[in-house]
């Protein structure tokens, strides 16, 4: 355990002494960070520095690591369901089924976190520039549009913590701006964001950086 344990209850998510090794290569060692309500933590690092692995560890998708992760002060593994009901994760694979339409995809993925109405989904899609595509199968949409379908979850979900892995990759300039606005809104409403991106985030307040490059390589 580290000597100074942060007792501040505002800390939504904290990680202590995280260690992860992959194929005999240390990705990170004694990694500590805190994320409070209304903050953005941008994870930075080169390709292969373990950004995605870190995000997956936080979400509980990857379990070969050492260290402690806590959610509002309590160990995360003791309150998975509570944590998951406040978590929205978007990975490299955006979670959009190619056969289903955006509307059908969102109806399912959002229903996991709470009840939604078709009107809510339609307005979220419209807000992300997908009006008119609600009912076309997703394999007809471009990669960027599929990403937008997945981003529509941000507008609908009540989750307080967003974990976004490279959310800007396939978006056009307009999409980048939309997403930045979404992030800013979320933070203003007391939500938190854990994000990996090479993009320079244009969010006014509460942005912190976590650099992975210098952690692992000794």
């Amino acid at each position: 355990m580290p000597s100074e344990v942060n007792q501040n209850t505002q800390n939504m998510l904290s990680a202590r002494q995280l260690f992860c090794e992959r194929d005999d290569r240390v990705l990170f060692d004694s990694l500590d960070f805190d994320l409070a309500e209304g903050e953005v933590l941008q994870v930075q690092g080169g390709n292969g520095s373990g950004k995605t692995t870190l995000l997956r560890i936080i979400c509980g998708l990857h379990d070969s690591f050492e260290g402690a992760i806590s959610w509002y002060g309590d160990p995360i593994e003791k309150q998975r369901e509570l944590f998951y009901s406040s978590l929205l994760y978007m990975g490299h694979r955006v979670g959009v089924n190619k056969i289903l339409s955006p509307l059908e995809n969102l109806r399912w993925s959002c229903s996991m976190h709470g009840s939604t109405t078709p009107t809510q989904i339609e307005s979220a899609l419209a807000q992300l520039g997908l009006r008119g595509y609600e009912n076309s199968p997703c394999h007809m949409l471009s990669a960027g549009q599929q990403q937008r379908v997945s981003l529509a979850r941000l507008l609908i979900s009540p989750a307080k913590l967003w974990v976004l892995d490279e959310p800007f990759t396939t978006l056009d300039a307009h999409g980048v701006k939309d997403l930045e606005n979404l992030l800013a809104n979320h933070v203003d409403n007391g939500g938190s964001v854990l994000v990996t991106t090479h993009h320079k985030l244009n969010v006014s307040s509460g942005i912190h950086y976590l650099k992975l490059d210098d952690v692992g390589h000794d």
């Binding site: 994760y89 990975g91 694979r93 089924n97």
Partner: peptide, 9 residues
Amino acid sequence: DGSLELLLL
């Protein structure tokens, strides 16, 4: 397509 991760989470 990543839906499995959403299901797990």
